[in-house]
Amino acid sequence: MAEQVMTPPGAMKTRERSSEVVLHLQNLTKKYGERLAVNNLSLDIHRGDIFGFLGPNGAGKTTTIRMLFGLITPTSGNVTILGKTMGTARAQVLPRVGALIETPALYLYMSGRDNLRAVAASLGGVPNARIDAVLDIVGLRGRQKDRVRTYSLGMKQRLGVAIALLQDPEILVLDEPANGLDPAGIVEIRDLMHNLSAEGKTVFISSHILSEVQQICTRVAIISEGKLVTETTIEELLKGEGKFRVQVENTQDALFLIKQETWGKDATLDEHNAIITYAPDNRGRDLNLFLVKAGFAPDSLTEATQDLEKIFLELTGSKGGEIK
């Protein structure tokens, strides 16, 4: 077995996005009585994307994922996977999609290896060598013979990922994959996602852990009350509104000076005592020149980015307690 070189976190973000849409949701809707769990949701996920699907608890993330796999029948709308409509080509397409839906569902009375054997037997055509390989991938080879009921939540999560990887899927759909994992496990999951993406696989991650999504994903969609709020790249989402963040020695004096200018009257200080301001002609170098000439040579001058948590709360109208 040859192990691939790890892709550095963030490397994927600079790679050009494939034009091939591998997962297409079109006006997907699920209604329970009068309540709309998922409301007219449309999304395109391209090959190689590490796509974050964000939303507060009860936003409709899991219902959407269950509709992807035909576990829940949509009230209306379509799902197309790898160019084929789910309604008619489910049996051809789904073997090429790996899934970890909600908490890992496992046969607790069997060993980790037997769980994989049971699923492999049902799916057909999965050799023992592949079972060894996925056990290696998720780092469970040493505990493969132990009953799953003795596993920690993190180990169960890893086994769930191993089951999802059994058939070397082209698309991997993971619902809250970092649940129960320790920090080292989370880093390993992140590396795995990047490696899979580098191999041309598409990863669709549903999560409410924003820091994880920010570090893993190339694109994100945020849903709230079943509706798509936004769908964009992480960079776009975090990008400020053309403002810059300046760190100088005499902050108050520099801020006073900037506020005298027409472009700088909205300047403010952030929680770290850095100035957040627009620049003359929206050009950072002009702002730098202005400050240097005024005797306030900046220690640093960067584009101001927004905090994902703040954006998320604004977009979803959530309470802080629902996210991490």
């Binding site: 077995m1 040859a2 192990e3 691939q4 790890m6 073997p95 090429r96 055509g125 999965v126 050799p127 060598a129 592949r130 390989a133 996925v134 290696d136 991938i137 998720v138 780092g139 890893r158 990922v161 058939q167 070397d168 082209e170 390993e188 999951i189 590396d191 795995l192 490696n195 899979l196 580098a198 191999e199």
Partner: peptide, 15 residues
Amino acid sequence: MSSVTLTTAEQARLH
């Protein structure tokens, strides 16, 4: 966790 590269034949068989 690390990814494991499959040979083309293995991959085709799995797919």
